[in-house]
Structures are given as C-alpha cells and as structure tokens.
Design a protein around this nucleic acid. Structure first.
Lengths: 148, 148
DNA sequence: CCTTATCAATTTACTAGTCAAGTGACAGCG
DNA sequence: CGCTGTCACTTGACTAGTAAATTGATAAGG
C-alpha cells in the first residue's frame, strides 16, 4: 500500500469538503431558483458593479470563456445586464438581480455559517481562516506566474 | 455593503484554493496524460480494487452517473477494466493502469506536498488537517442524511 | 410460468468549467 | 485610406459533474 503525506491528506479532505458543501449549497439555494456558482457570480457583481467581464473572471477565479457562458445564462434569467461600451461590456445587476440577492444573501450566509459553527469554535475558525489564507494566496501567485 | 461572517470567508477561501489547486494539478499531470479527476479515481481503484461502481462512487464522492461516465473514459484509455458478475461490475486496474499510477503517484504526491510545505509548518499542517477533518466529517453526515 | 419488485449501471438533459481558435471594433502607422 | 495589431468577448470541442428516467438481469410470489 502506498504511503500518503499529511499534505496530500489535507488536499483530499479539502476537495471532498468543497465538493460536498457545494452539493449542500445547491440543494439549499434551490428554493431561490439559483445555483451556488450563480450565487457566487451574482455576489461578486453586486460588490463590484459596474465591472467588466475580464475583471469579473478574476474575482470569480474562472476563465474568460467560463464567465462569458455564465453571464449568458444569468442574462437570460434577467439577473444581470451587459452594457456595451467600446469593446468592453460593463456588467451590473438588474432590479430582478438586486432583489434576488437581497432575498438570498442572508440565508445563504446563515446556512454556511451554521455548518461551520456546528463543528468549530470561534478560535478554531480564526485559525482555519489564517491557514487557508496563507495557502490560497500562495496558489494564487502560482496561478498568475503560470499564465505568463 | 453587505457584511460577511468569518465562516463565509472560510468557505470562499476554500473554494478558491480547491479550484486553483485543481488547475495546477491538471497542468502538472498533463505530463502523464491524465487529469486530476482521473488521478483521483485511479488512486481509489488502486487502493480498493476490486470494487463495484457504486462503492467507488462513494469513495470518490461522485454520483453514480458521474462514475459511470468517468469509467467509460478510463476504460477507453485502457487504464481500468470492468468485470460483469451478476448485476454488479467489478472495477480493477489493468497493467497499463498500474504502470500509470506507479509512474504518476509519487510525483503528484510530491507536487501536492511541496505546495503545502511552502507556506505551512508541520505544526500548522497538523492543525489544519484536524480542523478540516472535523468539517468534512460533518458535511459527510449531512450529505448522507439528505439522501434519505 | 408470468408478473412484479429490486437494484446496479446507464443514459438523457442539463450546469459549469477548461483551452484555444475565432470575431469584431477600434487605434495607429505607412 | 487601407493594413495590421490589439483587445474584449465569444465559440467550439472537450472533461466533469448533477438529478432523474431508463435499461436489463435476477429473485420472489401468485
């Protein structure tokens, strides 16, 4: 039997947790008629609007092609609008999109919070956040340098 | 501006890290001609073989439909074989699959390990693993109970 | 025997993502 | 005035996943 390192076990736990919590989020958000990925993008738009597609792709850590497809879906649903200006398209929420976020944001936040609160103390959460930030900032750098 | 909780920030960091490290893994594994998802499944098969598809779906935290497609791809590539026995199909690695894992396993492990080692001390890694395990075990339970 | 239930696996229709090639509009140079 | 480059975005071909309906083989009852 092959031997694993502590690091690889951490990777596995993280991948499993992320995948599973995504399933739970999707199930939870079904009542609002949106998916976890859509919530994520709508949330980024609501924070940074108006924002260009390429900037939004960076914020959502998704490729330009990916954000293009996602926005097509969200536009069809009437949650966002794209305003062409020169070669750039500026993205913002429609009234319907604002309402949807108004409706869903707090519930989704409470949902995520309750899952974490159930098994970690405040102190543990702080520690986890610090460690995750270190890790994620590091991979972010690697991603950027690999795209040069 | 909407206020986030510590928990939701943890979720976001985790989602971003997982996504980005998946991109890096895919890039790294390109030299072996497999993807990170394929590596994951091949690894589970190598540990538990012979294993049925539904058991494998649980190990890889993927739906039955998902594992069916994935195995079709891996079978086409010649990495695994399915032996029909009654209504069950038993999955195991072919010689080619064994060789591929022999070739890729240690490198992938070293790759994952180096990324974590770069930014966290051994002590921090232990802490992170403990916290992640608590979290993941909890969502695992929730997933199971939601499927009843 | 024939029907029905069961259960693993598959298929269908979908979202979500990747990379890489293609489009379209403008900018600037000769 | 036209060619060429650039830049934002889109599209095509793909992997990877989901939920839900379907298939196919076997066991069990009437």
């Amino acid at each position: 039997m092959r031997k694993n390192t502590l690091s690889s076990l951490i990777w596995l736990r993280m991948a499993r947790f992320t995948h599973q919590s995504n399933l739970l989020s999707n199930e939870f958000l079904k009542q609002f008629g949106i998916t976890a990925a859509q919530f994520d993008v709508l949330n980024q738009v609501s924070i940074y609007q108006p924002i260009t597609q390429s900037q939004l792709a960076v914020k959502a850590t998704v490729s330009e092609g990916g954000i293009s497809r996602m926005l097509t879906r969200l536009e069809q649903e009437g949650y966002i609008q794209r305003k062409q200006d020169w070669k750039t398209k500026w993205i913002s929420l429609t009234a319907k999109g604002e309402n949807k976020m108004e409706e869903a944001f707090e519930h989704q936040l409470a949902f995520q919070t309750s899952i974490v609160n159930e098994c970690l103390t405040k102190e543990e959460q702080k520690t986890l956040y610090t460690l995750m930030t270190k890790l994620q900032k590091n991979t972010e750098l690697k991603i950027k340098s690999s795209r040069t």
